[in-house]
Design a protein around this nucleic acid. Structure first.
Lengths: 217, 217
DNA sequence: CTTTAATGTGAGGGAAGCTCATATTTGCCA
DNA sequence: TGGCAAATATGAGCTTCCCTCACATTAAAG
């Protein structure tokens, strides 16, 4: 995140990311230092255990200075999320540019997600900052366990119909299908009702097309 | 959630859901009352604004009693998540039982998610309790906006190749694809590296099969 | 060099999670 | 029934953490 970005986010659509836009070089440098320290702390402890006093100390500034720029703790996380967002968006924009035909589209789309995945792997804090695991690590683990258990049910159902299917590959696919099913439900209830139903229907098509590769016929 | 469930969760795999397993009828009833009050409060204010003092008051017990059973605030949310989990699992188990052929499987799978969605709609707290929106509502909104913006990029890319595609339907599909792409990334980085790559690859197949319905050829 | 604006500081107010010493209720046995 | 031990209930208050504000310091302007 550049200093220009910081200023832009202070005045742009991102609602009050910074309480005060720093004009002096010293102040701008401090804000950057805070964000960098925040990434380091979140990488170690997760978003929910981030303490403002710790953050101030890590960035080597006082609590007061910290609050001069960030209205509250969530603003720090939001600013980081915004940074992830910028990076990802850039990656998507590039990946989808200048595609000539459907085959190129498929290749570009696939490559896009490989790059995206590499980005997430390279910056572990990204997944923490981004809202999915926001807060409670234990709950996150429970959610994943739950998806695995449901996936096992799905694997059995499919294997009954297709005894020769590749069980290992199917297990992974079923896991993804169940996990993303949860995600879809949460998305669907967050948007207007009619749109929600469309999303659910699309999800069913998507998931079934993956599962179809294991089914007979 | 029945009283039997409560006792089971105290001794079962769910790590210390209850600090003390209530044996007297009065105590068991109180624990149930706490959970019910918690659902009501979360429905109104969201998980992050749930205050233990409010919860005690709503359940008409003292703070001390509350902490006699729940080791901390997260335990309350976990217990509720466990309840959602039980309900969903039951729904999935039923939906996948006694399927005779691939066609029946597809129908059952589709119906499963309709029921699932209805469950989420009927109990709004479910989405809150379940980890997706855990914590920060604003961040959640940003995430959704972000997916919509990325979806717009994807829509343009596809429309360039297929000018006659149904833009409205494509917009919904692209939104889902982008949103679930995020979800997949977070899942992939939460599991061992090799498994993560398999999940990403499966996701690409899934998403592309949906997008393929809009592409020429 | 003075003035004014910008920036920096940390003690402390306040809110919320959680504890613990004490009081009350229940179950059990004579 | 009475009396004792275990289970349960209570809420004042301790602790931790977010955040404010009155005041100190530093940079920019004239």
């Amino acid at each position: 995140m550049t200093i220009a970005d910081l200023q832009a986010s202070g005045t742009g659509s991102f609602r009050q990311a910074l309480r005060r836009v720093p004009t002096q070089a010293r102040a701008r440098e401090r804000v950057v230092r805070v964000l960098e320290a925040a990434v380091a702390l979140i990488e170690r402890q997760g978003t929910d255990h981030l303490k403002m006093a710790d953050l101030a100390k890590a960035a080597d500034i006082s609590i007061g200075s910290l609050y001069q720029y960030f209205p509250d703790k969530t603003a720090v996380v939001h600013a980081l999320a915004e940074r992830c967002y910028q990076e990802s968006r850039h990656c998507i924009e590039e990946g989808l540019a200048g595609i000539a035909d459907a085959a190129a589209f498929r290749a570009a789309f696939a490559q896009l997600y490989d790059i995206y995945y590499a980005q997430f792997l390279a910056e572990p804090a990204m997944a923490d900052i981004w809202s999915g695991t926001q807060g409670d690590k234990d709950l996150r683990a429970i959610e994943i366990d739950y998806s695995r258990e449901n996936a096992a049910l799905l694997v059995e159902a499919v294997m009954r119909l297709a005894p020769d299917a590749d069980r290992q590959a199917l297990t992974a696919s079923a896991f993804l299908v169940m996990y993303l099913g949860e995600s879809t439900m949460r998305l669907a209830v967050s948007v207007p009702r009619e749109e929600g139903q469309v999303l659910v229907d699309d999800y069913k098509r998507m998931a079934l097309s993956l599962l179809d590769t294991y089914l007979p016929g």
